[in-house]
Design a protein around this nucleic acid. Sequence first.
RNA 1: CGGGGUAUAGCGCAGUCUGGCUAGCGCAUUUGGUUUGGGACCAAAGGGUCGCAGGUUCGAAUCCUGCUACCCCGACCA
Length: 578
Amino acid sequence: MRMSKMVGRRLKEDPKDAVTVSHKFLLRGGYIRPVSTGVFSMLPIAKRINDKIENIIREEMNNIDGQEVLMPVVLPAELWEESGRYKSVGPELLRFQNRNGSDMLLAMTHEEAVVHLLRSEISSYKQLPAMVYQVQTKYRDEARARGGLIRVREFTMKDAYSCHESQENLEEYYLQAHEAYVKIFDRLGMNNVLSIESDAGMMGGKVSHEFMAICDCGEDTIITNSDYTYKANSEVATANWIYNTDEEVIPLEKVHTPDAKTIEEVADFLNISQEHTAKAVFYVTDEEQLVLAVIRGDIEVNEAKLKNVILNANLNFANDEQIRAIGCEPGYASPLDIDFEKVTVVFDNSVAKSINLVAGANEADYHYKNFNFSRDVKVDTDKYIVADIATVREGDLCPITNTPLQITRGIEVGNIFQLGTKYSEAMNFNILDNNGKAKPVIMGCYGIGVGRAMASIIEQNNDNYGPIWPITVAPWEVHLCALNPKKAEVKEASESLYNQLQELDLEVLFDDRGEKPGFMFNDADLIGIPFRVVVSPKSIANNSVEFKRRGEKNGDLVPVEQIAQKVAEAIKAEYAKF
RNA sequence: CGGGGUAUAGCGCAGUCUGGCUAGCGCAUUUGGUUUGGGACCAAAGGGUCGCAGGUUCGAAUCCUGCUACCCCGACCA
């Protein structure tokens, strides 16, 4: 490719709207252009990278016996009504009508479509296991798209669906899929991707893993110990919290605590540590049901965990009015003196196990000292819940190794789920087993966001000047620069080299524009091709050219007659690393 | 959906508070010339519904009202 003819310009300055590194470089380098919030066009450079990412994924999917298919993006609502998701999924599913007034949708995932496809093709256990996958557009009407390609509304995803006769067979295949994913991210040059167990969310199913590309701009919070033997999404992470279980239980005592509403004020006023307090946090569900979370004063409630415990997906903080309506005093609310009929009470383990905590007295300006859960909560155990609803903090102790936990951020670039029979049962996807008995197919599904992977690769491979593409996904393998191509000797040598490199089947981007060196080199850095060859009047006078690696400051002079071979070898050696 | 911010040439911005001549600057683009190892120089040129709609005024990028789009934080997220 000649740069003089390449569509897509590079920008000198950072676009004001871009914040993350990948977003800045994707815009500045002429990779993508925004069309609408979370909707982008890809220019030729990005398209080439995109295709390479897709092809690596295809190869690994084929290696685990995947068969590529293609399903539509526009689906009839009836299909999603079969699974129940037409109603259960919120406004992130884009619904519309066609000219006949039929309800249609833009697929945000393809379980329904794949079951529709396979249920008429697969009817015997002899045809299993089977896996089909596609690389297809998805549309999700995200509440908030952000960060360039990191979180978008329209995107390309590789989604794979496997079918099995037994749970054991699914589990066996699931491990293979996990292996394939590890290989894929290795080959994409993402050197820091963690697979962590996750919550299955709306997909249903039991076991699932998220593949997290570790980087500061990631949206997900991941809790790990130092050797990664423990790793979990913050939504499910737990810790080995230390509770004061050794103290002598002493009698309740009501104390005057004027104007001490917050935990900090109470602890300061009574001159105790926050670990010796219990706080009461009120939530309200969409159905107006009050929920009281009681947790040790120094620990924050983890709303994701709380939602799982009470089996309700929508929680908001309750206001003072709502709290008073059930007879509590905001700021001084207490698990004592509370009407357990009117409010769902969830005690965190920290409160259930600690001794002699300070808790509210349900009366303005008063607290109780020496609250003890086992002694003071006198209602039947079925009136409340004790669970882990605590947010893990940096430095809390690992539940496995007891070493301090760390908090890191990650981008979810892929996930794998053991779906089970959720869709096959709902949509009547059955096979006959070897006894001639009909049973639902057991399924797994496996996704990777292609554009998100591209952004993540940049997040993990860049310097101040631009991305540093791994050879496996680089838009071209070598960047040839002709410095001052008006000089006949430079033009001749660079054109000849361009031909030689192409004859060696190398992918060459040829900067034939005759720009100033600095201009050209900055563009080259933004395009981030791993190898660069510069032909200049000076070097050619010595019958040599400069050969440099992206990311290294200085290159080597190489005799002109050796350079093509040397480039080919370097590229080959580079591929061998993946 | 809540909070904050922005909208003037392809990109980055000034001008808006305090209304006033023909709307400006840098980069980019075109032409001619000089230049060529980390974003050159000289000369000339093209490029604008000042986000949209309405209003106030002799006069609106600037003041008023309504709307829209985009970005950031939060909520949400197979």
